[in-house]
Design a protein around this nucleic acid. Structure first.
Lengths: 190, 190, 190, 190
DNA sequence: TACTAAACGAGACGGTACGTCGGGTCTTTCC
DNA sequence: GGAAAGACCCGACGTACCGTCTCGTTTAGTA
């Protein structure tokens, strides 16, 4: 993923874009399981070696292809009203995990990370969920009391939705309004 | 997975046991990614067709091999004291997800379920986490007030730990004692 | 292929007939290569073991199923006029090898015999071609002169047609009339 | 079986040679029936796909591996003396069919051709027997009279030996000297 | 009328080859 | 020296058939 300057032909930006675009399309069309390096290369109209040169496996390609979208979808413009901000964030999170392309990519990668430490490291390198939650949670912790660490607060906020969707319960039964109240109450005296 | 009918040679119980044993061993030895139907059959000293005859894929074998252990590890003997029971359950859950063989199998399956709906259906067919939590949560809901559905209470209890570990944050930063308090507070006035 | 008398259930004649019938049908429908012991048993509505009990491989079944037809098709009613009898025999031989079901079975078995000595022994045990030719050739050898052995005369008579058809030249280019003349001339002073 | 085009890695000549060598060895060692594409690839130290890429089945590999030897073994250096040339050819033919490796391959292929039209077409594409005989027969037909077609003369010459050996009568009873006389006499007034 | 014994159908068993697919690498030519 | 092309070796896929082995059932003797 490093690019050297100097001698030789420079990296083809069009090839890079083709690959990222291809992996995005393919994830939707065939799903993660049927996503292959060979298939990506063919769909992108690119040599196989070119894919391997810049990414070591399909997880890396997929990560690079989806992380920007993921960040955007999880970014909430803060109003300063805790209830509103939390609610907006949980809605965004639910939509991301349950319905978005980037979210599907994230879930696939997180699944792979359970038994592939390379993928786990990749995901840890850019903690999309944690960082997005921190933006909402940090102001509250600074302002309010509670002795919760930011990490714990994040887990408390994200956890229930995260579990709901990843365990296959579906997003319908997620009640973000009620969860905001629970979160605030749990936080309160802590 | 049951079969009955007088005719024909009956299913070999020893073959079944060999396969389940083999998949258990192999998960530990080579990991989920390198687990193959071929490898399972060879390790079990069994024909490949015999494996395919009773299980459609490695996820099914693994599920059958680990679900009983999983249930045992997550079963908590209730004392009737909410704080103690909840604490015991969260400790068991943390240990299961982070350190147990059966837990590793569960995490692998849950990962696969994110992009394979057959596996998702398989996991949904026996909701190990949900059921084990219900045993602890149900008494509280009956006793106490709150308008939380059992499902929501379960997600509230399990979610934070679940997120912590599956997102790669590690079990060290899980503080079950504090989480019990949060849970009880969130539940309280609801 | 032997049938013992005595205790126990006697061999089922209907099973035997079903198998022979099935192999006949299947040869025509799917060809020799796709003929399998399993397929025969299923088509005959018979247990696999029953087939194996009485025949050791598909060649044996096929041989038993076709040898009688073969003998019939190659039997020529002699008139005593050499030219007519030889002509009739060569016509029968051509038809047998090129167009008949039994002939297709024979060619398949002969092919297998080239690399399977069990099948070679099976074919040698009942030399359908040789015997049928002998019936036509023997009278000539007794009557006429020539120091040809019956075997050599048989080869001389059958050989050209046999080669023509088995080497894939097709039966159209077989001129039995001319071959009779050649045969008689070659035989003449020998 | 030819491939050309600048792009891409060119076909490995060493892989091709290994495969042809392997199939030759294996035919002798295990026989045609036990010859498998898998076995060929493994023996040649070559990927299975590489074998399938250039040959569709074991018959094609075997054909390519043996056809050159076959042609050599059946080539007779003509003296111009019919009796000598015919005799030499029949001796070569007998040796080829009965004792040579290439001949064993030919018989196996011819057997397969009886029930596999792909193999039949393959054999027909290079009529080793017909062409070799034509070289000996053509001069006679041009010189002498007779209204025999080259095809018929070929069948007349080859047929008896061919039948003798393929029908399992063995090469001992082949009397090439006598057969030359028969052939010449049959040819004579025709 | 039992009992015994073998053949019967069904179908699971351990094996192994099938032909295909993807993995990751290597070797060309072209840019 | 990057890139497209495509052949290379490897090994898992899921299927088919091999020949064998249990099962419960049926059909004869023989006792």
């Amino acid at each position: 993923m490093v690019q050297e300057s100097g001698r030789g032909r420079p990296r083809s930006e069009s090839a890079r874009a083709s690959v990222l675009h291809a992996v995005d399309d393919l994830l939707v069309e065939v799903g993660y399981a049927a996503l292959t390096m060979k298939g990506i290369a063919e769909r992108a109209g690119v040599g196989r070696q070119t894919v391997y040169r810049w990414w070591s496996n399909k997880a890396e390609v997929l990560y690079e292809a989806s992380v920007i979208d993921a960040r955007q979808e999880l970014a909430v413009s803060l109003t300063g009203v805790p209830r509103d901000d939390l609610r907006a964030y949980l809605d965004a999170l639910t939509g991301f995990l349950a319905h978005s392309h980037a979210g599907a990519a994230y879930r696939a990668l997180l699944g792979e990370a359970q038994h592939d430490e390379d993928v786990a490291a990749l995901l840890a390198s850019g903690d999309v969920l944690g960082e997005s939650a921190a933006a909402v949670v940090a102001p509250l912790l600074e302002a309010g009391g509670g002795d919760l660490s930011p990490e714990q607060a994040t887990a408390l906020l994200i956890g229930p939705v995260f579990f709901h969707i990843l365990s296959g319960r579906g997003p319908e039964s997620v009640d973000t309004k009620k969860q905001v109240e629970q979160f605030l109450r749990a936080l309160a005296a802590d």
